[in-house]
Amino acid sequence: MGFQILLHIGIVIILSPLLLGIIGKTKAFFAGRWGAPLLQPYYDIGKLLRKGNVYSTTTTWIFQAAPIVSLAAVLVSSILIPMGGLKAPFSFWGDIILFAGLYALARFFIIIAALDTGSSFEGMGASREAAFSCLAEIVLFLDFIILALLSKKLILSEMIMRNILSWELFGPVLLLVVASYFLVLLTENARIPIDDPATHLELTMIHEVMVLDHSGWDLAYILYGAAIKLFVLGALLVNILIPFHGLPAIVQFMVFWGGMIILAIGLGIVESCMARLRLNRVPQLLTGAFVLALVGLLIILVKGV
């Protein structure tokens, strides 16, 4: 058990920044550039780890606690999901609520750390994050409801594992779930079209503006946390999409990691083709995601499970 957990966490720690690297490469390819090396996110984090910290005189211990709590919460959420041939080390009845709760915990601390600096820009980012994540959470739970109804289980790793039969019966529903979950993924990870981490105007940012004052190890923890969050939520999406489970471990392994790479490339493509939405359109997008999931639920309602 202990070994499994360590293996899981280790894989997540080692591989998650790679996803960001693939996204960056894809975007560079679409822009016709060669782009930064694939391992750039690792270099970034490594650079930050070699730097000292600057603390604002306004801040308190909350400011220093937030990166640790958020990274730990996001990291621990990874042990609830299976990855390829690896089973989830922890799976129990009702773990989806814990899964959502861990993300809420991480978010809460990042938000109050932003408020701790007393900067108006960071307050603005915190306020937006709080508003949008509320909406994203509803959509997430609606997706969970559908998955739970399809599997009659409340266990995350079994809700997302299913056999080919359910794709045949409920393919359209699952696609709706995937579509709405994808929008949640974009919102939670502050990707284009919800938020653009690359802009240079603090007024328009959400996630990046909240961590303006963090530096050195704190910032490294936060960036790592963001990478892991993308990785874990992405792994969940890939798991939903994989239609068959119970094949030999090696096949599952290849399918899963192939899926992750495709997801990263897909994210890169989405980010290359779209522009950031105006902020007041974001709730609209999430409402759209909500309606998508709602249609899925309605279909289940009519067809019966």
Binding site: R50, G52, S119, D213, W217
Partner: peptide
């Protein structure tokens, strides 16, 4: 442990 070897500074919050 890392903070033992790295400098820590204090400054006012960045006003953008």
């Amino acid at each position: 442990i890392a903070m033992k070897f790295l400098p820590i500074e204090n400054a006012p919050t960045w006003g953008c």
